[in-house]
């Protein structure tokens, strides 16, 4: 079977994408696999200006998962466009730029810069980072604010598909999903990390300098699966599922509940060639289960 998927105007040769913040700018992984074989490369969240990020320690290991509070350290959009993007195989594999800003206007400015770049395949609007003081969640938890950001990004993004990445840290994910769809989002990706905390009883201090962080890894997969299922039942636009995926079986679970594609995040830390090997594993499992085409399998969960 052809593993290719179509998410509106975004065509992927397979449904496997990297997750922002776990794959650097892509170039860090060229020793471990061929970027051309991935469905899409999603790069670290970029802001208009470089960001230093949060103080250390920024990461903590937890059962079947990890907490992070990186704080969106990044080199800034200009440096990315000059130094990184030209070295990525964007003609073979769409490069999705994840964008972060503190104000709706800055999101719009970022979209304007990226909207005319031939090497950018799509924009992923990060309204869900739990680790920054401003921006991020203040948009992701408020439907009106989310709508405003999405409308402004869409206006400036030209022909680029706009993905909106949602936070699980909300009372009802369907409300925010419906809001961003109505505002013109082309695709929804979810879930970003779940707010969490770890403390040290000997030092009596939080394990992260930021005290709170975002939980990721296999521990959050059931939460992600439920939310992806709920959102797929609510919106008509394509959905990208992520949260704790480590195997081809996990990928099929997300597609079964309605996702069109998936992102691989924390699993990349368990082995840097993980996302590349998953492409082959998925191909084998699809053949073994005799899945004939995505359209019939996607969302075919019997409830």
């Amino acid at each position: 079977m052809d593993l290719g998927v179509t998410l509106g105007a975004l065509r992927l040769k397979n449904p496997i994408m990297t997750a922002s913040g776990t794959f650097g700018y892509g170039l860090e992984f060229t020793s471990y696999g061929r970027l051309e074989e991935l469905g899409a490369i999603v790069v670290k969240g970029l802001s208009l200006q470089p960001r230093k990020g949060n103080p250390m320690p920024r990461i903590a290991e937890t059962p079947c998962g990890m907490l992070n509070a990186i704080g969106l350290q990044n080199i800034g959009v200009e440096k990315f466009l000059q130094e990184k993007l030209p070295r990525l195989p964007w003609k073979e594999t769409p490069v999705v730029v994840n964008l972060y800003a503190q104000k709706a206007e800055e999101f719009a400015d970022l979209a304007a810069v990226l909207g005319s770049e031939p090497g950018v395949g799509a924009l992923e609007v990060n309204i869900s980072c739990p680790n920054v003081r401003q921006g991020g969640l203040q948009f992701g938890q408020n439907p009106d604010a989310a709508v405003r950001v999405v409308e402004m990004v869409k206006k400036n993004a030209g022909q680029k598909p706009v993905i909106v990445k949602l936070s699980p840290n909300v009372a009802d994910i369907k409300v925010i999903a419906g809001a961003v769809e109505s505002a013109g989002a082309d695709i929804i990706s979810l879930i970003n990390t779940i707010g969490g905390m770890a403390v040290d009883i000997r030092t009596r201090k939080p394990c992260l300098a930021n005290a709170f962080g975002g939980l990721s890894g296999p521990a959050i997969k059931p939460v992600a699966l439920k939310m992806v299922y709920e959102v797929c039942s609510t919106v008509k636009i394509p959905v990208i599922g992520l949260g704790g995926i480590t195997s081809a079986r996990d990928i099929l679970e997300f597609i079964l509940v309605g996702a069109s594609a998936v992102q691989i995040g924390t699993a990349t830390f368990t082995r840097p060639d993980k996302v590349f090997t998953l492409v082959n594993e998925l191909r084998e499992l699809v053949t073994q289960l005799e899945i004939e085409d995505w359209a019939r399998f996607r969302g075919s969960l019997e409830t």
Partner: peptide
């Protein structure tokens, strides 16, 4: 977490 420059941890 990663050893390859990606996680920024």
């Amino acid at each position: 977490a990663c050893g390859v420059g990606a996680c920024l941890g």
